[in-house]
Design a protein around this nucleic acid. Sequence first.
DNA 1: AAGAGATGCAACCGCGACCAA
DNA 2: CTTGGTCGCGGTTGCATCTCT
Length: 339
Amino acid sequence: MGRAPCCDKANVKKGPWSAEEDAKLKDYIEQHGTGGNWIALPQKIGMKRCGKSCRLRWLNYLRPNLKHGGFSEEEDNIICSLYISIGSRWSIIAAQLPGRTDNDIKNYWNTRLKKKLLGRRKQQQQLHHQQSPEGSPATSVEHDHQNHHQSPSSHGLSNSALERLQLHMKLQTLNQNPLLHTMLWPKLHPFQEKLLLQAMNDENNNNQSMQLPLLPQPEMMESPPSNTIIAKPLEDEMMMMMMNHSSNYNTSTTSNETITTTTTTNEINVDPSPFQLGGGDDFIMGNLDNSGSSLVWWSNEFETSNGVNYDRSGSFSSSSNDSSWEYCAVRSSDGAGLF
DNA sequence: AAGAGATGCAACCGCGACCAA
DNA sequence: CTTGGTCGCGGTTGCATCTCT
C-alpha cells in the first residue's frame, strides 16, 4: 500500500500556469507569506492546484530576483566545478549562484552545458564508431545525449559519475593551458569551499557502510601519508560503480605486477598497486604520488611485465597543495584491471 | 513548404528526510 | 517509538519550438 497522495489528484489542475494563477499566487505570498504550509495554501486562495505545484511555481518562477537563461561563463565554470565535485546536487549548486534555481541549473546542465563541455569527446566517439562499427557501444553518457528522453543504456554505470569522470579528464586536458585553467577552475570563495567540504563529507558519511575512507578536512591534509589513497567523492563513486558493475571484480593487496608504459612523450612507472579492481570492459586505475601535478593522455596500448596488454584510453591527474591524483581508464586484454 | 527529429524548458512524480503529535 | 503530514530534492515527462532535410 502506497502513501496517501498529498492532494486530491482528480480535482487538481495540472499543466502550465496561467498569468492569472501566477498573479494570484504571487500576490498572496507577497502579502501573507507561505504560512509554512504549502499543502494548505491553494485552498486558502481558492486555487485548484496541488500545494507542491504552487511551491514549485513560486520557487522556480515567481520568486523575486530570479534570473532566467543567459548563464555567464563564470556561472558555467562554477556549475561545472561543483558538478564534478559533488555530482547532481542541484540545490547545493544553485545555492552558489544567486538568482538561479536548482531546476534551472539542472535543465541548463542537461541540455546545454554538458554537451558544450563534452562535445569534443562526442566527436571522437563518432569518429571511433565510424572506424569500427562493430566496436563497443558509446558510453551511457553519450548514448543519452543522442537519445533524448530515452532510457539509459544497458551499460550499467552511473551516468552522473561517468560524466564527472569524463569532465574531470576533459578539464584536466584543458588544464594544461594556464589561461583555461583559471577560467575553468575558478577559485572558490572560502564559504563555497566550506559548503563543498560539508557536502563531500556528507556523501562520505553516507557511504560509510561501504567502508570508504573519509574525505580529510583541510587540516588533515597537511601531510598525507605516502601511498595513502584519499578518496574524494568522485573517486569513491567511481570505485563503487566499478565494483557494482563488475560481476567478477577482484580486489587484492598482494599485487606484485609492475606496469611500465612507454609513449612518445611520457614514460610512466606505476608502482606495484596496493589495490586491484577489475572485470567487465573498463577499469579505473589510480596512483597517488607526491610529485605534484602531472597530466598525461595516452591512446596507445602498453604491456605489463606479465605480458598483459592494456589499452590505456586516457589518463588524468589533479592536485592540490598537499596531494595529487592520477587516474587512467584502462581496458585489458585479459579482463583484469588495476587500481 | 512540410514533415520528422532534436532541443529546451516548465512542470510533475516519487521518494527520503524531517518534524510534530 | 510510531505515525502521519509536509518539505525538498533529483529524476523524468510532456510539449512547444527550433532545425534539418
